[in-house]
């Protein structure tokens, strides 16, 4: 089974946390056992042990192998994050203090990111002022939005719904309110929205918000 970005990230997380938990349990158990077994009362005189080369090699080599496994999972998931499918839909994102705006290939502008379900979306990230960071927790993706650079990221919404967009790089007074939404719609609905928006914007550029006649509140935010 081919994993998507979300699953691959969660899997990496579970692998690292799982190994870590085992190590922590092992260390703690050994420590508390020694504190009990070799307390002053039970073991009045210590034994003069100053080291053991075999142990040193083992507890260097085994962790090296473990972190290589972790690195591998993190890296392969990352490669997926960086390789957007060639048929992805391109959207230009602009962050400014303190709002996000989106521009589609046909020139439509919006302040909510409408996307079709099941299609890859590649974002070109631009900043109009200071550094921001485009973060969609539900998709496990984030990339900084830095003035003078064009960073990119991509994701593919699997289900219809609304997903929070948050600015993750501190950018001043209203950083916490630099929020937006990704709204994933079925392809037909998305197409009609885009067409509708195009017609409306050629006549009135200020109208972007109400271009879609859907009950936004009926869709659960993720």
């Amino acid at each position: 089974m081919k994993l998507d970005i979300v699953r691959q990230t969660d899997l990496t997380f579970i692998i690292i946390v799982g190994i870590s938990f085992l190590l922590l349990a092992l260390i703690s158990a050994a420590m508390f056992y020694f504190m009990y077994k070799f307390s002053r009362k039970r073991n009045p005189v210590a034994t003069d042990i100053t080291g053991n080369t075999t142990l040193e090699i083992l507890w260097t080599a085994i962790p090296v192998l473990l972190v290589l496994v972790m690195f591998y999972f993190g890296y392969s998931g990352f490669k997926m994050m960086r390789n957007a499918p060639t048929d992805a839909m391109n959207v230009k994102v602009t962050g400014r203090m303190w709002a996000w705006s989106y521009e589609y290939e046909n020139g439509v502008k919006a302040d909510t990111l409408f996307v079709p379900v099941g299609k890859s979306v590649k974002l070109e990230l631009n900043s109009a002022d200071v550094a921001h960071s485009f973060y969609v927790p539900a998709f496990r993706v984030k990339e900084d939005v830095i003035p003078g650079r064009k960073n990119y990221m991509w994701f593919e919404p699997k289900e219809e719904g609304k997903y929070n967009v948050e600015c993750a790089e501190y950018c001043g007074l209203s950083h916490a309110y630099m929020l937006s939404l990704v709204v994933a719609l079925p392809q037909e609905k998305f197409d009609s929205w885009l067409l509708n928006a195009k017609t409306l914007q050629t006549t009135d550029t200020t109208k972007t918000k109400d271009t879609l006649n859907i009950k936004q509140d009926s869709i659960k935010t993720k």
């Binding site: 970005i5 691959q8 990230t9 990496t12 997380f13 690292i16 972790m70 690195f71 999972f73 993190g74 890296y75 998931g77 990352f78 997926m80 994050m81 927790p137 496990r140 993706v141 984030k142 990339e143």
Partner: peptide
Amino acid sequence: GSLNTDIH
């Protein structure tokens, strides 16, 4: 330290 989890 792991790449994909750090991005998140």
